[in-house]
Structures are given as C-alpha cells and as structure tokens.
Design a binder for these strands. Sequence first.
DNA 1: CTGAAAGCGCTTACAG
DNA 2: CTGAAAGCGCTTACAG
Lengths: 345, 345
Amino acid sequence: MNVTGHTRRPASIRDVATAAGVSYQTVSRVINGHPSVKHTTRERVLAAIDELGFRRNATALALASGRSRAVTVLTANTTHYGYASILQGVEEAARAASYAVGIGVLESADEAAVAAEVQRAADAGGGLIVIAYDPAGVGALAAVPAELPVVGVVETPASPPGDDRPWVWTDDREAAYEVTRHLLSLGHETVHYVAIPSSTRRTSARTTGWRQALKEAGAPEPRPVQGSWGPAGGHAVGVGLAADPSVTAILCGNDDLALGVLRALHEAGRSVPGEVSVAGFDDAPHSAYLTPALTTVRLDFTGLGRSAFALLHGVLEESAQIAPHPVSVPELVVRESSGPPPGHD
Amino acid sequence: MNVTGHTRRPASIRDVATAAGVSYQTVSRVINGHPSVKHTTRERVLAAIDELGFRRNATALALASGRSRAVTVLTANTTHYGYASILQGVEEAARAASYAVGIGVLESADEAAVAAEVQRAADAGGGLIVIAYDPAGVGALAAVPAELPVVGVVETPASPPGDDRPWVWTDDREAAYEVTRHLLSLGHETVHYVAIPSSTRRTSARTTGWRQALKEAGAPEPRPVQGSWGPAGGHAVGVGLAADPSVTAILCGNDDLALGVLRALHEAGRSVPGEVSVAGFDDAPHSAYLTPALTTVRLDFTGLGRSAFALLHGVLEESAQIAPHPVSVPELVVRESSGPPPGHD
DNA sequence: CTGAAAGCGCTTACAG
DNA sequence: CTGAAAGCGCTTACAG
C-alpha cells in the first residue's frame, strides 16, 4: 500500500495537514466526517491521506475521545464448539463495525482469579461480552463493575429479565421440549436426561423443557443424571444408564456428552437406535458423521455472538440502534440415533 | 476492590500523587519499578495506589511509551480444534505475561480482504501471531509489513529457516512417518493418504513423512487423495476409497477427515479395522470416543501457541529471553481403528 | 532521590 | 468554514 515504502514512523494528522496545506484540526474534521468542511479542502485532505497512507492511530483516538471501539470476550474455554462459535460470531459483527476484539480466558472459577481476569479485560478498554454458561463465566459477569458496558451470553433465564439487563440467549427450554417430544412421539415410555453442569444453582432451562414435555405426556420423570461437558463425562454416566434395561431413550445436554453415552452403550452391547435412542444438543460439526448419526437440535451460536455484539454496540454508541434481543429458534435435526423403542409397532 | 465505590473517573497518577504528597513523576517511577525512589516515599505511593484502587491506564501507557503489551492472533477460523487450541495456548502465555490478546478472523483468502484484516490487526498495536495453515493465513503472513513484529505458526518448513524467521511448527513430517510405519508394521501392503489442503504449493510435510515411510518399506506409493478440512470432505473422498477393494489402510490429514472416511466406509459396509484400517492426525477430543476409537497422532497445539507467544515476547521486549523454537514431539496414539489387513496372520 | 517540561497522536470546546 | 489552545494519562529525557 505504501508506495514509498521507506517510512519509519507512520504518518500522523500533522503530516497530512502539512501535505494538504491545512491545520491538523481540519484533518481531524475530515476523518471524522464532520460536515462543515469546504468541498475542495476535503478533497485535498483526502488526497494527502491517500498519498501518505495515513491511518488514524487507534490508541490516540481512544485516549483523546475516551472510547475505544473495542470489545473483549471473556470465556472459560475457546475450544468447545458452542463457545468457539459465539466468539466467531462476535468477531464477525465486530469486524463489520470496525471494532477490535480481544479475548480473555477464565481458567479457574476461583473468585480472585475471575476478578483478576475481569480487571485485565477492563484494562483493555471498550466493552465486555461474557459467556456465562459455567460458574467461571457467571462469576465474571457478576464481578463486572457497574460502570463498565457489558452484555452476557447466558442460559435461558427463568423469567424474562428487564430491558436493563443486556443479555442474550437461545431458547433452550423450547429446544429441550422439542427433542423430548420427538423421542416420546416415537413411542418411548419416558426419556432420561444427562445434564450439563448448570451455571447457577437454579434448574436449567434445558431441564425445564425436558420436564415439561414429560409432564404433558404423562410420562414418568426420572432423576436427571449429572454429566460434565465432554465425552469423558458422558461415557462415565453412560455406563450406568447402559446397565439399566428399562432405559430406552436418553437426551444429552450436548453432543459431546451424547458421544460419550453412545460409546458406553456400544461397549455394553446395546444397539442404537434398536434398543436405545440417543439425542444431543448443539449440532456440532462431527455429529452428522457419527455412526449412528446423531439426532440433535441445532443452536445458532454464531448468530448469538452477533446479537451479543449488536447489543453491546448499541450501548457503546447511542448512534447505533439497539437491536432487540433476537432469540434464534432452535431446529430439531432428526438423524439415525433415534427410533422407536424395542417391541414397538 | 474499590471500597468507596462512588468513583466516576478512575484514579490517575496525578490523583495518586496528590494523595501521597509527591509529584506524579514519582508515582510513575514507583509503578515502573524504578530503583531510585526513597523507600519511605515508595511506601507512601504504594499505600495511595492501594487506597484509590489505581490501575495504570493501558491506552495512555501505549501512546506515551510506543509499545502496547498486546498481541493479536490472525486466523482463518476459531472453531477447528487445532486452531482453537493454538489460540488458547497464546492466551495462556499472554495472560501470564500480562499481555492483552486480540483476535482477527480471515474470512476470505482474497488478497484485498486479507490485507484489510492485517491492517486492522496492525491498528490494534502490539505484535502479531498468524496461523498460516491455509491460504488465507499464508497470505496474511506475507502481507505483514516488515516493520511489524510477527511470528507465524506454520506447516513444517521444507528446510529449517534461518534464525531471522520467527516461525513455530510441530514436526508433522515425523508424525506422518510414525503413523504410516505403524500401519505398515501391521502388515498392510501400502497406506493411502487423504491430504488436508496445503497452505502452499509445495508438498506438505505430512505428505513427505508418509511418502518416506512408504519408500523405506518398499511399499507402492498411491497418489495422495485431496481432501478438505472437515468431515464432509472426508466423506466425499471416502466414498471412492471405500469402493476400491485393494485399499486396506488409510491415513487422513486430520481427525475430522478421518471421521468422514470412517462414515463412508461404514456406509459401504466395509468394517474397520477388519477390512480397512484408518488413522487420523491431531487427537481431537472426540476421537477417543468414536466407534471404532480412532488411531491418531497427538499434536501439542496449546504448547505451540505458548511457544509462538514466547517468541513474539522475545522480539517485543529485549529484556525477555528469546526461547528457542521448542518443537514438540508428536505422540502416536494407537486405538481401535487400526489393525492387521484381512487374511493376515 | 525528586520535580518541571515536553510530547505521544488524537479530540473537544472556543474563537474567529 | 477553519485555526489556536487545552487536555486525555501516561513516559521520557533534563534539571537540580
């Protein structure tokens, strides 16, 4: 881009001003789109900007103006599919709005460690987006000082929060309700549930949706089994489920958990979906290629990330319009891992 | 932290100076660990800092000093396991060094789009780490202006680069060599290879390692099959491989590809490892739980990210010692998907 | 050992 | 429509 190529120090607005024969305040007006600049002057400044390859120094802008066109995402993990997709969505929207995006990982849920991470994120300037699907994230969201602009990506709240709570979420209750109904409609007497860890002490929306479908169908309500996040956790609890001959349908809190359950079932010699049906949550990229291919419900995490940014953007700049929380609708994806129970006609 | 809790504007060094009864330059000396400060003065300043909850403004620091304790990671994707793990490793090391980490996604390999992303990353200040495993990343690495501190996370280079090239990589050649030898040792006549897209026009290190093992064993050398990154790509080429009865062993460029191949084999009714052996690359979290569990080679992506940061850190601060490129050794993980060919004794 | 001055590259009132 | 001044919160020489 820089034709001369031998510039050491990048051009400043003063350099541009000199080249255009104006004061640097006028250059400032031009790059800020201020209307009161004579047309010919503007042209001259623009030409100088182009010639010198000028780019406005973001650090100086932030210091002088007090706002920084930046957002940092606080998350407990960057490798889980859902988390990574949210991050990708945030970045996508931020890029479109010319915002920088930073990232901070909450390695521990320890209060002091979380507080330190929030501080670090605050030091970066700009707004915060915290993924609050787990205790570390929930702690971080709570630890954000009131004066800092923040939006939380949260589990479905029990009751719709006021407009003052800048939160986004997917409709997990509805999603769980749908998959459970799908399983019941196949003829299963009931559906067992392997839960992901809840971020709070309250009953999660997924659990609520599952329970509601069971209630409506008059099906017995087994105790939810507590799983963890990954396939190892699914496998661990799957072993117990596989040993229980009365279990014919299992809903898992996410696809990774389902993978572990599938494996445990296989090891126990129970066929899927012949003897047991399994369904997951998320529609991770590999789920369609498993054998059997996993029935699951697709959640739009990328869209969720975009929404989170839009909301934050609205808070940060009054000019930007505040998008309503667009709750994306979950989509049931029926594949091979679900079918009628044994002996069903 | 802030006991009073009603501070609007955060405390500045001037506020601290006033509270401690010194000039703000002295405060600056204290927070920078400058030795020439009287012990009692230092104590007083430290007390004031604590009381006011002072945190040094990173933006002002960056503007005044010219360096910014920040690094931004440029990557084509945030959801692939390897990429996400590298990011996690960078963040881990950056956090330990009190650096901020930014992220920029290269959504397209288009030259103008890549250049724009590099600019955006450069605007953020600080150093750059670019993941150059694909054309977009390779393009970005090439587009970084010479004056910008950058380290590339690259495929194994054909020849060791000079010390002036701040690159890190894993030993893919060795890794491919090992898995291929494992497969051959099982009795397979040869091993087919499904390649991930190469980031450059040159033959990739994985291909080279595979080929070397074949040569040493005097095995016939099938043409590598070109795959893509995900399971869909693996499935597409897997269909062809499954239809060829002479194929008894398949090495895949990554675990996702292997998943797709496994699925294609299953659909064609060819058992694994009974009729065909399959191996992958990366040891993604789900690979151990597939049925059959996937034989693969574990690569330390998180460590790679940490190394990348260490290298950049060394470039950014002369004080920080430049770590030697620590090439992590890949580890062969034999699971269920590999076994002797049919009819082998 | 410590203070007063200048400056990093911008923006924001204030004049004209 | 455009310029001169002050300031954002720090650091970096320069004095003493």
